[in-house]
């Protein structure tokens, strides 16, 4: 694994190399070279199996992290290729030509995070959320609790007490801070 990373380091600018396990390594690359690295790994390094494409929302940094997780079935190890894209007008080059299932991932990311993948088949078709008119729900700023409070109604008669506050009200109600 070390060897492979050293080799890749020569052609691609890898940063934040993290050997998570002996058979799992994560690296970060610039957005422009991410798919070059993915393609290189598939074609020359034996990473023939595409595991998943996932997104992590780092809202505090204004970034989406895209993770392309590749697997080398004969070497039995995984490489996670991270790249960070801007959250505003989020867009990434489509990788649907590399593996057949990637179009599905990209369709889901478009729907759930609002990341566009121009040219990806059926990327604009709704995948899971038919008739959804809120912001893409996997974005961190989408508040599930608020949504459910706005959409549904609470059960009558529910209400709880915090033990410490309740004890104060019972035992020393006059004591102010």
């Amino acid at each position: 694994m070390e060897q492979l990373i050293n080799k890749l380091q020569k052609s691609f600018k890898l940063s934040d190399v993290k050997h998570q396990r002996e058979n799992l390594t994560f690296v970060t690359v610039k957005k422009d070279s991410a798919l070059d690295l993915v393609t290189h790994c598939r074609d020359y390094e034996g990473f023939s199996h595409f595991v998943l494409l996932s997104c992590v929302d780092w809202i505090e940094d204004g970034k989406f992290q895209l993770t392309y997780l590749l697997n080398n079935p004969s070497g039995k190890f995984d490489l996670g290729i991270r790249t960070f894209i801007s959250r505003d007008n989020a867009s990434m080059t489509s990788a649907h030509l590399l593996w057949r299932q990637i179009a599905t991932y990209q369709r889901e990311l478009k729907e759930m995070y609002g990341i566009d993948f121009p040219g990806s088949p059926r990327v604009d078709e709704s995948f899971i959320l038919e008739g959804w008119d809120e912001i893409p729900p996997m974005r961190r700023e989408f508040d599930t609790k608020k949504y459910s409070e706005d959409t549904y109604f609470p059960r009558e008669g529910r209400g709880s007490n915090d033990p410490a506050t309740y004890m104060k009200s019972k035992l020393y109600p006059d004591d102010e801070k």
Binding site: D162, A164, M167, L171, Y172
Partner: peptide, 11 residues
């Protein structure tokens, strides 16, 4: 849980 706060004389 905060049960202790009531018992502490200074709360």
């Amino acid at each position: 849980c905060g049960i202790c706060t009531a018992t502490c004389p200074a709360h």
